[in-house]
């Protein structure tokens, strides 16, 4: 009974944390954007604009939820939720740390919900599902820009998911396990996979950028040509759900990257910090890198996106598998 309660508690805690994460992340994104462009970012709501996310949230809550007249109303309504659920589901297998003991009742608690022996497959598969929300939202809006956004999303997803998962195979070959927990444990003590799989990491990073639709690969919401793309017709909370998805997806991609390539909660031993702090620091660093690239690079053209995916990343990931195979044997 206690076990079940514990699992429920963990699920609740992780969900709450993930739901509230977009608040600081939007603030961080706007601040990073501001400072890179030699501006200040939000300054007026609260000291240094710290309450800006709450103001945005209140604004979005009170806006009218518009459903276009000729939209497919049902699909239009569920699309944001469809895109939101998978990104939350990813965290079911994510190990945030090893074990810790609750001091008073002397109970050992694992810092993950489930240790699946196909964890890495599960994470990649489920993370890929959130594209359905984008596609359906784009199609159901019955607007040409949204439809184009949805089409781009589907083609982009297929092209980059392939390279992304192929680059993970290298890790699986090195570690000999599909379980995320094993992958992290095998990297303990500075044996981080980034040192063994640098090519794989580069492919994974680029593929990840495309997977979570960040600049330079955010063609699905391309303001320049599609005027917001798949969420062009959305407003109010449904729009907020899409934003929430984007930020949680960004976090999940950073988390996966840290787990696969940067040793999870493993930190340098001369600085005595708890593992979870190292983990969070690494994740925040990658989130920052995502923002940093967003405000540095322009957007790729669509044909460039496709040729990078199919002509460069996919062959490179196959080469990576080949090299890893040779070395492992």
């Amino acid at each position: 009974m206690l076990e079940v309660l514990l699992i429920i508690l963990k699920v609740v805690v992780i969900t709450m944390v993930m739901f509230s994460l977009p608040l600081p992340l939007t603030y961080m994104e706007r601040k990073v954007a501001g400072h890179i462009q030699v501006r200040l970012g939000p300054m007026r709501v609260g000291p240094h604009g710290i309450l800006q996310p709450f103001a945005d949230m209140i604004k979005l809550l009170f806006k009218e939820d518009v459903v276009p007249a000729k939209a497919d109303a049902w699909l239009f309504r569920i699309a944001p939720v469809v895109s939101m659920i998978p990104v939350f589901a990813v965290f079911a297998t994510v190990p945030f740390g090893d074990k810790f003991t609750i001091p008073f009742i002397n109970k050992e608690v694992t810092m993950y919900i489930a240790d699946m022996n196909v964890g890495i497959l599960y994470v990649l598969a489920v993370a890929g599902l959130s594209v359905y929300g984008t596609i359906l939202g784009g199609w159901a809006s019955n607007s040409k820009y949204a439809l184009l956004g949805g089409l781009r999303a589907s083609a982009q997803m297929i092209s980059y998911e392939l390279a992304l998962s192929f680059s993970c195979i290298g890790i699986v070959m090195v570690v000999n396990s599909l379980s995320l927990l094993d992958i992290v444990k095998s990297q303990a003590g500075w044996h981080w996979n980034i040192f063994y799989q640098p090519l794989g990491f580069i492919i994974f990073f680029i593929g990840g950028l495309a997977e979570i639709n960040r600049i330079p690969f955010d063609l699905i919401e391309d303001e320049g040509t599609l005027g917001a793309g798949y969420h062009a017709e959305y407003s109010s909370m449904r729009f907020a759900f899409f934003m929430l998805t984007e930020y949680v997806a960004m976090v999940s991609m950073s988390v996966i990257m840290v787990l696969l390539y940067f040793g999870g909660w493993d930190g340098p031993s001369f600085i005595p910090l708890p593992g979870i702090i190292w983990f969070i620091l690494k994740v925040v660093f990658f989130v920052y890198v995502f923002m940093w690239t967003r405000f540095t690079y322009p957007r790729y053209r669509y044909d460039q996106l496709m040729s990078i995916g199919w002509k460069i990343l996919l062959p490179l990931s196959l080469v990576n598998i080949l090299i890893t195979g040779l070395v492992v044997i």
């Binding site: 990649l124 890929g128 596609i135 589907s154 297929i158």
Partner: peptide, 20 residues
């Protein structure tokens, strides 16, 4: 996982791509 990965994650996305 493979079922979701291959069928749901890739094949159906292609279906949607064509059907849209």
């Amino acid at each position: 996982a493979v079922q979701i990965f291959v069928y749901v994650g890739a094949v159906l996305v292609l279906f949607l791509f064509v059907i849209m």
